[in-house]
């Protein structure tokens, strides 16, 4: 049997949810998995709600539809909670991870009809502390890997370091910040 993990990302255009889904696909590929990373495209506008998806499996992936019953949902922008049904189809044994400075207790009332695990993480704070700017996608990537356990943590961090070295070949000074953002998110989300 394959161990398929399906992840749905909710963000706003320009926040990097698509990039985060592609980075996760990259890391999962580099740790030996079959992967899919794809965004749902609509009119491309900064700030408009967007969705991106990941499938990660030990077996080849053939299905080519969006994900309707995800194992995990990542919400990169808290304001989407009041406009998008982010938990639609989310499996009860899965989890939702939300970027917000609030605690789970404070935000619970906004997520009705979901009885599974909830995690919050202040990705903005982590990003500003480690990268000096608000790039929430890197901390959210660390958080979803930690919560989902879809990859072994050290293998994930090694794979990401390789990806960042490749991606930021012309500006290596940002690699350590990105790695710090991942690590801090992985610690914070578990609390």
């Amino acid at each position: 049997m394959s161990n398929l993990t399906e992840i749905r990302w909710h963000g706003r255009g320009g926040q990097g949810a698509k990039t985060a889904s592609l980075l996760l696909a990259d890391a999962a590929f580099n740790t030996g998995n079959y992967v899919q990373g794809f965004p749902e495209y609509g009119p491309e506008r900064m700030g408009a709600p967007i969705t991106a998806y990941n499938r990660i499996s030990s077996a080849p992936l053939r299905v080519h539809s969006n994900i309707y019953e995800p194992d995990f949902v990542v919400v990169v922008d808290e304001t989407l909670l009041s406009t998008v049904d982010v938990t639609a189809g989310l499996k009860a044994e899965g989890a939702i991870i939300i970027n917000t400075p609030k605690s789970v207790d404070e935000i619970k009332s906004k997520i009705r009809g979901y009885s599974g695990r909830m995690f919050t993480i202040d990705a903005r704070k982590i990003s500003e502390e480690t990268l000096g700017r608000n790039f929430p996608n890197t901390p959210m990537l660390g958080a979803v890997v930690k919560v989902s356990g879809v990859m072994e943590e050290k293998a994930f961090l090694d794979a990401m370091e390789g990806s960042f070295k490749h991606k930021f070949a012309t500006k290596p000074e940002v690699i350590s910040g990105n790695m710090a953002a991942l690590k801090e998110a992985m610690q914070e989300v578990a609390k």
Binding site: A25, Q36, F38, H64
Partner: peptide, 12 residues
């Protein structure tokens, strides 16, 4: 090939 579905989807 199918636009976006395979053109923009990253796979092995």
């Amino acid at each position: 090939q199918d636009g976006f579905i395979t053109s923009h989807g990253v796979e092995n």
